[in-house]
Design a protein around this nucleic acid. Structure first.
Length: 261
DNA sequence: AGCACTGTTGGATA
DNA sequence: ATATCCAACAGTGC
């Protein structure tokens, strides 16, 4: 479920495997994954190019080529990258970049909810997709966050997941951040005071950075993390009482009624 | 066999 | 303007 930490790890993976190699061919086994461009012109854009640098905003990964436009990857809920030197492709490979020297990078997406496209202008792309600031943007402060959310009536969890408010947090990490902050997911935005915003903001940073450091692998997360027990309706990792699973805004939501108020 | 569920986005609807 | 709901997608489990 690629959210900010997962995409950050994909970015590092791409940086480690795929930079500065000439793209000799691009295969698009499933053109439906392309957004606003058909296979032929997409392939033309990449022919002879090379991936020179990457950047991330929220759940979007931008791959800057030797010359514009720039490649944009979104992973939906099942997308990931796979680099190898072999001819075999993983199941559900939707786009494959072949490099000089036998390497290839596959964009894999089982459920086809992800999208691949290109853009000449990264900032314009962010604007047109109405993306809020990245959750780890260094310019972002707890006050800035509170101000962006001001006037909203929705539950804090739904607000955090709104990519036009804040980019990068999804269903999974929203649960973890609110658990670490000790704030109940159904609390309304307007009920939160400065203290609560500060707590949420700090928890957000701590959780996202910890997740990145652990390669976004839940099994490596600290034992006090909710995600390790999520979905099992087991005991709370902090107070040992029963966790609760409900629905909020149509999304599965897991929290501890005792630790989160 | 058929349905619910999974999580993300975007478009429709209230 | 904001909030909620559903479709799209593929696979799994009941």
């Amino acid at each position: 479920m690629p959210e900010l930490p997962d995409v950050e790890c994909f970015k590092m993976y791409l940086d480690d495997t795929s930079l500065h190699q000439e793209i000799v061919a691009t295969e698009v086994p499933d053109p439906g994954i392309l957004d606003g461009i058909s296979a032929r012109p997409f392939q033309m854009c990449l022919q002879g190019e090379s991936m020179e640098a990457t950047s991330r905003h929220g759940k979007f990964l931008f791959v800057h080529l030797k010359s514009p436009p720039c490649l944009v990857l979104h992973f939906g809920m099942t997308g990931y990258l796979d680099y190898a030197r072999s001819n075999e492709l993983p199941k559900h490979a939707r786009v494959v970049f072949r490099f000089a020297g036998n390497g290839r990078l596959a964009y894999v997406c089982q459920r086809k909810l992800g999208r691949v496209t290109i853009t000449d202008d990264r900032e314009a792309f962010l604007q047109s997709h109405q993306l809020g600031p990245d959750a780890l943007d260094e310019q972002l402060t707890d006050r800035g966050l509170a101000e962006r959310f001001a006037g909203r009536r929705s539950a804090i969890k739904s607000a955090m997941m709104d990519q036009s408010m804040l980019a990068g947090v999804g269903n999974i990490y929203a649960d973890e951040i609110l658990f670490q902050a000790g704030i109940a997911p159904h609390r309304r935005v307007f009920e939160l005071d400065d203290q609560a915003w500060r707590t949420i903001f700090r928890a957000m940073h701590r959780v996202l950075q910890t997740a990145i450091r652990k390669g976004a692998e839940v099994s490596r997360f600290p034992p006090t993390y909710l995600l390790r027990r999520r979905g099992q309706d087991g005991p709370c990792p902090k107070c040992n009482r029963q966790l609760k699973t409900t629905r909020l805004g149509g999304r599965r939501t897991c929290f501890c009624p005792h630790c989160q108020q």
